[in-house]
Each structure stands twice: as structure tokens, then as C-alpha cells.
Design a protein around this nucleic acid. Structure first.
Length: 321
DNA sequence: GATATTTGACCGAC
DNA sequence: GTCGGTCAAATATC
């Protein structure tokens, strides 16, 4: 993967290459700081239902924006984050005593780990290939691999395990291996467009839209709407922060600004911005504005992840193990 | 018929 | 021997 700056830089160690490295450095730092902020926010908002879920999703989007930027910049840092599980609220994950994978193979080390109420939608398509009841845990673990595993040999996998019966329920999602399904034909513009379309329902999203209908599609549509609202809101928030940031600390690192700019662009491409609350100045996320309750988990069954046969409350039947 | 999901069995790591 | 990850046949869905 080639960086745009790298391509345009010409030969030799130039000033633009220094800039390139500096941008990568700051983006990496921004991603790490976002991970810390996420952990702190989840800890502070624990048990606060919608606020907790909204914060988790927004900060997940921020983190993803940094990753996308790092990908575009062709940074090695865009591959596996450090093994300290930056996206994880350790305190949130700890009560569920999820030990790291015992196998010492490289493949068994999660490249990313996160706790989210919405484990299904992360911009990629996954196929479930297994489920296992894990000892000393209340919920089974589901195993997914990239839908392009067969046709493109993509080795990316993820594991999803419900880690709490709260409202909304939280899921621990662990990612293994990097996606190779979209790098073979990688072109920055095309890839960025595809990525945005994939996540924001722009033309091109059909390329990765679930083939099957029914519950899966409804779920995907709902989560897609949620994502649009949240990304748009985030873009507005970050856009405001960017302005403030530039006014207050003009010589500060550009990472946050870069990410914000990307997020703003993506959000603008996604359509109209959400209504901003006159009192707080913050985007309104309520369903009245966008015709959707962003976090109306009353309509999301507990077995969203694990299916009817898992015997979770409301699912009926016993555990299959 | 094609594709996705379920689930018991198998295998490797500890 | 136990546990967790993956396989693959059976089943479900479109």
C-alpha cells in the first residue's frame, strides 16, 4: 500500500517524507489516546445504558478514523496495535474473566479487542463458523471469519462473546489477523470510497451488503442508521473541536485535526448533518430527529448475537452444550 | 440450488 | 486430561 504523500514526495529523504513520518506518528498517538479515552469513558458511564452505548460507539468511530488514516498513510502502525489491548476497558472486561487465548501461536493473539453493545457491524462482513461454550463464563463465544476467507484467502477472524447481561448487553469482540481481502486491489481513492460507502450506505455499499434478507437485513439496516447518525454527530463534534484546537494551540500536533477532517468529510458525504440541540450545542441523537431511536435496545433481542437456539433469556431452549 | 448457520466432533496447545 | 479453536455434515433460509 502506498501513501499519497509518499507517492508525491519524489526521490530521496525529503521534507515531505519527514512530514509523512510526523503525520503517522501523530495519528498513532491519536489512536492510542482515543483508546485511553474510550476506556475512561466506558468506566465513567458504566451502567448508564444509552449514554454508555453511545460513547462506546462514537469513540469506536474515532479510533477507526485514525486507523483508516494510518492505512491511507501506509503506516506499519495501521497493522496490529500494541498488545495492551488499547480498545479495551480492562475494568469492563475483567469481571467476565476472559483469559487471553491459551494457544501461543501468533494467530491467537488478538490484534484488536473491544467491548461494544453492537458487535456485528464493524465495516466488514463476517461468516460464523463456530460457537463454543467457554468454561467459567455465562455466555458462549461465537467465531467468525471474513466472508472473503475462501475466495480471497482473507485470514481475518473475530470472536464475539457477550460479557454482561446489562441493558444494553455488552459484547467483547476480539479481532485476529489482518484483512487481506481488500488490500490486493487497494487504491487509496477507491478503497477510501469503498470504505466510506460500505459504512455509510453510499453507492457501492451493495457490494458488501448482506445477501440474505429477513432478520439479518433488518438488523444491518438498523445498525447502519445508527452508525450514520453517530458518525455524523461525531464529525460535528470533532469539527468544532478542530476549530477550537487550532485557535488555542496552533502548534499542537495535527493528528486530531487530520482525523476530524476525515471524519467531517465522511460525514458530509453521508448526507445531512443531524439537528444540533440549541441548548447544549451538541447533536441530537434522539429518534425524533432522524426517525430512529439510536439506542432503542428494547427492540434488539438479547440473542442478537447468539441466535434463538442458545437459550438466552427470551430465546427458549437450553444451551447446545 | 446457493449460501449461511448450527452444532457435534476432532485436533492441537497447555 | 482439559480447554479452546476449527472443521464439516446437517439444517435453515432465500
Amino acid at each position: 500500500m502506498q501513501s499519497r504523500l509518499g507517492v508525491s514526495g519524489g526521490g530521496g529523504m525529503s521534507a515531505s517524507e519527514d512530514e509523512h513520518e510526523a503525520v503517522i506518528r501523530e495519528l498513532t498517538r491519536g489512536r492510542q489516546l482515543t483508546a485511553r479515552l474510550r476506556a475512561e469513558a466506558l468506566r465513567a458511564l458504566r451502567g448508564q445504558g444509552q449514554a454508555e452505548a453511545t460513547a462506546a460507539l462514537i469513540l469506536q468511530e474515532v479510533s477507526r478514523a485514525f486507523t483508516v488514516c494510518l492505512n491511507i498513510m501506509g503506516s506499519p502502525a495501521s497493522a496490529p496495535p500494541p498488545p495492551e489491548m488499547p480498545g479495551v476497558d480492562a475494568a469492563a472486561a475483567a469481571p467476565f474473566s476472559l483469559a487471553p487465548p491459551r494457544r501461543n501461536r501468533e494467530d491467537s493473539i488478538p490484534r484488536e479487542q473491544t467491548v461494544t453493545p453492537s458487535p456485528h457491524y464493524d465495516g466488514y462482513q463476517w461468516r460464523k463458523y463456530g460457537q463454543k461454550r467457554i468454561t467459567k463464563t455465562h455466555y458462549p463465544r461465537c467465531y467468525y471469519r471474513c466472508s472473503f476467507h475462501r475466495e480471497r484467502g482473507c485470514r481475518a477472524t473475530k470472536q464475539v462473546q457477550q460479557c454482561g447481561g446489562g441493558d444494553p448487553p455488552q459484547y467483547l469482540v476480539m479481532y485476529f489477523n489482518d484483512h487481506t481481502c481488500d488490500t490486493a486491489a487497494w487504491e487509496p481513492e477507491a478503497a477510501a470510497g469503498a470504505s466510506a460507502a460500505m459504512r455509510l450506505d453510499l453507492p457501492g455499499a451493495a457490494l458488501v451488503a448482506p445477501r440474505r434478507g429477513g432478520l439479518l437485513d433488518e438488523r444491518g439496516v438498523q445498525e447502519e442508521h445508527e452508525r450514520q447518525v453517530l458518525v455524523s454527530s461525531l464529525a460535528r463534534v470533532l469539527g468544532g473541536q478542530q476549530q477550537f484546537h487550532h485557535q488555542s494551540t496552533p502548534d499542537a500536533p495535527a493528528a486530531a485535526g487530520s482525523s476530524a477532517a476525515v471524519a467531517v468529510n465522511v460525514a458530509q458525504a453521508a448526507g445531512p448533518a443531524p439537528v444540533v440541540d440549541a441548548a447544549s450545542g451538541m447533536p441530537r441523537l434522539d429518534g425524533d430527529v432522524v426517525g430512529l431511536d439510536v439506542m432503542d435496545y428494547d427492540d434488539v433481542p438479547g440473542e442478537l448475537c447468539f441466535g434463538d437456539s442458545y437459550g438466552l433469556p427470551g430465546g427458549g431452549g437450553g444451551l447446545p452444550f
